[in-house]
Design a protein around this nucleic acid. Structure first.
Lengths: 345, 345
DNA sequence: GAATTTTTGTAAAGGGGTTTTTGTCAAATG
DNA sequence: CATTTGACAAAAACCCCTTTACAAAAATTC
């Protein structure tokens, strides 16, 4: 690896001059010299030592992406397959701006913070954190931070959240379900926080508006831990018989549920209508194809990255950016079954 | 951010001493001093400046993961959703060894190489590269490299390939299909290179062994570009009628095909048997559940990372590591239909 | 033509660590 | 008692690049 010092030596000039050429400081270097240096740089295929440069400029050109992953029963980290899209969107955006991406996957906020300070990353994108974790991180570090899908924004001064209009999306879908004639509609999820809560609220609002009463038992709680998933599905499929439609909090759960129902001889949509949320490959390839709420995950990544880049340039950014959803009507929501017909095989 | 110099000043000693304590150089520092320094370090929560350290030590503690992504018709990069698992496996492994992961996604090998040299990463994992790209990269850079799923290993001295026993996996599956009574079995893929070629070869070997003749037209070529996918599936579904089973090169294609067949009124497995390869969520959640060949993608990432870490420690590593596959028998391969019955609805 | 400004280039001072060299002091050795 | 050895710490060099302060040369102004 050739250094700037060597180049200066060989060209019989000072390192400053070479550096000035590299940084395009016009007016400090004669046209003649600039040409000579540039040619030589090309010739030797000069690449600056990034550590030296960062040390001198006190920046890293690195953006950290911290993913809070779930862990399975063996304490292994698990990533949602669909974060790939998100990562892709972020990476593409920041790369075009000359930044690199450093990936941390962890469930430990403390560790993430330590990484950040060690690495001197210029900015941070947080995804999948618990709501207040994001706030805590942002309070401790003064670097620009963009959160994804975070709902509790008490300390929102220091960072931006990029989210989805979850409430409205769920509302629209449930409204559509009701318009198909359904009145007994359950909601399936595994928790009532953050995104899930927002979607639940949208569901409730649609019910209320239609004059349908909501009761606690209409919330079907799935337990996704692999040890419990089967028992959990068993119970849910049983309770599902009381409803004509189920609004699922995600496509993953919708498809999981459809499989479980199919295994138990209950047909979708003849026996029961199912709606999802997210619109990913899982639902679009399934048959019957899933009726769902679309969100553009990649776009979310792009917006998050663009917002962070803005912050890094010192530009003003909003505290909250909300992306829209869109209904995707496919085949799993139809009009409700007549009375007791469950579409059993 | 407190520096080592400040610490030394405040403690009334030299930076060397502090540095020695940090690096645990025993015998160079008195027990008393060491204790004093260590306490103080904890107190001020000292974190070394990574750029300075790397500059001094000429290493980065970064491992680059270069993913060669496909591009869609709008020239956007697309990532396979299931690389998330791979990334997870790699990240977890290297993090435990004190390394960080830097992610490049690109389709341009040149750019990747430039990144690598700019960033002074300690080692590189390449995935999804064209076969010879890996070789080219490894020839140009002397850093340790581990490739995933690369088949052309002409210049294999400098790097290790972590792959799968694709040939054997496909062979086993097709043998199983034949054992179910099938004789007209097609193979579905979009190319005949690398991994796909190996799987095709396994398929051919099983056919040959059973005395079934293979002809060019038994290769069903899918065109996955979004503009052509529908026409492509149309043609394939039509040609599928000549067969009683189709061995698909991946779960994604298997599920895509099943959806297309279902849409055209052909039932799986009553009308035609379908087998996949990879064993991901897509196939396990589909109904009928996909019979497929299992590979542990996360494990692949772990092995790749561990191998690279070995190289970085200067240990010897094999040039080729081949991971096993396992048959997953579910519901999409049964005995062949009688004559012309296609299981149409 | 002397004084002033502009252009062009250099030397030197960081930036924050690591590592080598040098030096001091006390204990051990002969 | 003189000398060697060992433990410890300080000083200085180095990693490579950026940037500031300054000097020399050229161009401009009066």
């Amino acid at each position: 690896m050739i250094t700037i010092k060597e180049i200066a030596q060989r060209l019989n000039m000072s390192t400053t001059t070479v550096s000035n050429v590299i940084h395009g400081k016009a007016g400090e270097v004669s046209e003649e010299t600039r040409r000579r240096v540039e040619e030589f740089l090309k010739e030797v295929d000069y690449v600056p030592n990034i550590n030296a440069r960062n040390l001198a400029q006190n920046e890293s050109k690195i953006i950290g992406l911290a993913l809070k992953a779930r862990v399975d029963k063996y304490e292994n980290l698990i990533m949602d397959p669909f974060v790939a899209e998100l990562i892709g969107g972020i990476e593409e955006t920041i790369r075009n701006a000359g930044y690199f991406m450093m990936l941390y996957i962890s469930r430990d906020t403390e560790k993430i913070m330590r990484h950040v300070s060690t690495w001197n990353v210029d900015g941070l994108i947080l995804f999948g954190m618990l709501d207040d974790d994001g706030v805590r991180v942002s309070k401790k570090y003064k670097k620009p931070i963009v959160c994804l899908d975070t709902y509790s924004m008490e300390g929102l001064k220091h960072f931006t959240n990029v989210g989805l209009d979850d409430e409205q999306g769920a509302y629209n879908m449930v409204k559509y379900i009701i318009s198909c004639g359904h009145e007994r509609i359950a909601f399936l999820s595994d928790n009532t926080k953050g995104v899930d809560l927002a979607r639940l609220n949208g569901y409730k609002r649609a019910l209320e508006e239609a004059g349908i009463e909501y009761s606690e038992k209409d919330f079907l709680k799935i337990r996704p831990a692999s040890a419990e998933i089967e028992a959990s599905l068993d119970e849910i499929c049983h309770r599902a018989l009381d409803y004509t439609a189920i609004m699922c909090v995600s496509d993953l759960y919708a498809v999981t549920l459809m499989s479980a129902l199919t295994d138990r001889g209950i047909r979708v949509p003849e026996g029961i209508s199912i709606a999802g949320f997210d619109d990913n490959m899982l639902g679009s390839l399934y048959r019957p194809a899933l009726t769902t709420v679309h969100q553009d995950v990649k776009q979310k990544g792009v917006v998050a990255a663009e917002t962070l880049l803005k912050k890094l340039r010192g530009e003003e950014t909003e505290a909250q950016i909300t992306l829209p959803t869109r209904l995707v009507i496919r085949d799993t929501v139809t009009k409700p079954r007549k009375s007791s017909f469950m579409g059993r095989f």
